[in-house]
């Protein structure tokens, strides 16, 4: 009989408790964003689609050698032993592991998975897998719309960060004030 009553009470109590938790979360702000319109900021060093700085590449094949899945195909001709006339630099994103090894072995630091400004292209949605064999030479980075979105997100973030920094500074100032008051108090105490 005791267990019976306890079961009834327990189930009601824990249900109400759970409902309190969900209610609490009902009033919290959402954590998701509307993806194509809003972008989540990418960290620096994000691993997206590669970009190649063809001017400084010395055609040493290290990236192609280290690649665990052999997805880099490169062909160029040396002109007058100095310049490279590029024919092919393809990365097959059907295979690519996004492991960052090709970037690390590069002796000239000319291949990147993010653009130098920290933005990166990452969407690989396609209905035709053959389109995933991308020509990195032709790939010009973000589209205009993407760039605008990135700038917008970055500005927003900067604004938020500034606000946060401001709030933190204020807090700190307040804390410092308290501290100095404390010190004053202590000084008074010691004076006594």
């Amino acid at each position: 009989m005791f267990t019976y009553m306890r079961n009834v009470v327990d189930s009601l109590r824990t249900t109400v408790k759970g409902m309190q938790v969900t209610w609490k979360n009902l009033r919290r702000p959402e954590t998701t964003v509307e993806y194509p319109e809003q972008l989540v900021p990418l960290p620096e060093g994000y691993r997206g689609i590669h970009t190649l700085d063809t001017d400084i590449c010395i055609y040493c094949f290290q990236c192609a050698k280290i690649c665990p899945v052999d997805c880099i195909e490169m062909r160029a001709e040396r002109v007058e032993k100095k310049f490279l006339s590029w024919e092919v630099f393809n990365i097959d994103y059907n295979k690519c592991l996004f492991c960052d090894l090709c970037i690390e072995v590069c002796p000239k630091d000319c291949i990147h998975m993010d653009k130098r400004d920290g933005s990166a292209k990452f969407a690989l949605i396609t209905d035709d897998r053959s389109t995933l064999n991308l020509d990195i030479l032709e790939y010009k980075g973000l589209s205009e719309a993407d760039k605008v979105a990135v700038v917008k997100v970055r500005e927003e973030n900067a604004k938020k960060a500034a606000e946060k920094a401001k709030a933190a500074a204020e807090k700190k100032a307040a804390a410092d004030k308290d501290e100095s008051e404390d010190k004053k108090d202590k000084a008074d105490d010691s004076g006594k």
Partner: peptide, 9 residues
């Protein structure tokens, strides 16, 4: 066969 079934560019 190791070659992928999709057409190569």
């Amino acid at each position: 066969e190791v070659d992928p079934p999709w057409p190569q560019q």
